[in-house]
């Protein structure tokens, strides 16, 4: 009678692990599945943990590299090119064919690393993970559904404020003004006709602004003095001048007749 109790106790003691270990243990299961598929029958605990640690570090390094690539291209979402660059960076150590001429050819996606991955997908049998994993997001959503009052506003928002706009109706704002799309969402990747995309691109007159932008001015205390952002000063500081002086100072370096006539017209008024 006593023995199973003591076993249970030891089990519960093993289960109380820090939360970072949960993902590590799942990775350990996946890595041991891969080791078994390669041909190993058994494994040392330390060796398996080392390989698991290396695998997690690989994933994180891949992510960090992809993020730095996408941030360098001033995007927040990573796309296929960022991930391809990241995979290239990590496989440079082992080397691959075409690594030296990777950036000479225009097509980054022609690389042998991606071909190797597709060969790997074709040649390797699927070994799905042992158990389904519940997503953290789904759990959170279920908790939110239980209290529908908290769906729109958090506890810090006072009740007399109007409700937030519905998140589902936000799809229109995701599309860009000129109908451009991200490359990975374009029809060339999704397998539709490429010609349609090119026609669109040729037809629409791309990045030209519909209207010429006017200069932005603003008054402070309104007594004929204006704050100007003096873009020709080397120090890049605010200078406070009278209106007409600033106008002349702004227009002179341009030296176009139109600009000067504009200034004269204003003075006549």
């Amino acid at each position: 009678m006593n023995k199973p109790k003591s076993r249970r106790k030891s089990n519960t003691q093993q289960e109380t692990t820090p939360p970072g270990d949960f993902s590590f243990n799942i990775t350990k299961v996946a890595v041991s599945q891969i080791c078994k598929s390669v041909g190993f029958r058994r494994s040392q605990v330390s060796a398996l943990e080392t390989l698991t640690l290396v695998a997690t570090k690989y994933l994180e390094a891949l992510g960090k590299s992809a993020v730095s690539f996408s941030n360098a291209a001033s995007r927040s979402q990573s796309n296929l090119l960022d991930l391809t660059n990241a995979i290239h960076d990590l496989s440079l150590r082992a080397g691959f064919t075409g690594a030296s001429t990777l950036y000479d050819s225009n097509c980054l996606l022609k690389s042998s690393v991606l071909e190797g991955l597709s060969c790997f997908v074709r040649s390797t049998d699927e070994i799905p993970f042992a158990k389904p994993i519940e997503r953290a997001k789904e759990r959170e959503r279920e908790g939110v559904k239980a209290s529908p009052g908290n769906l729109q506003r958090g506890a810090h928002v006072p009740e007399w404020l109007p409700g937030f706009p519905h998140m589902g109706s936000n799809e229109k704002s995701k599309k860009r003004v000129n109908g451009e799309e991200l490359w990975e969402n374009s029809s060339s990747v999704l397998g539709c006709q490429i010609d349609v995309l090119e026609d669109k691109r040729n037809g629409g007159n791309g990045c030209k602004l519909a209207k010429k932008r006017t200069r932005v001015k603003f008054r402070i205390n309104g007594v004929g003095k204006r704050m100007h952002w003096n873009r020709y000063s080397a120090n890049n500081e605010f200078t406070q001048t009278k209106d007409e002086d600033a106008e002349a100072e702004y227009k002179n370096p341009v030296k176009s007749k139109e600009a000067q006539t504009l200034v004269f017209k204003r003075r006549k008024r």
Binding site: V38, Y58, E60, V67, L83, I87, L117, F120
Partner: peptide, 29 residues
Amino acid sequence: EHYLAKSGVQCPDVRLIRLVAVATQKFVA
């Protein structure tokens, strides 16, 4: 997704997540 989110990747595309998974699996294998 967990490890990528830990290092700051925002990627809603399942195919790219799978690509990373396949790359890691190939490396481990």
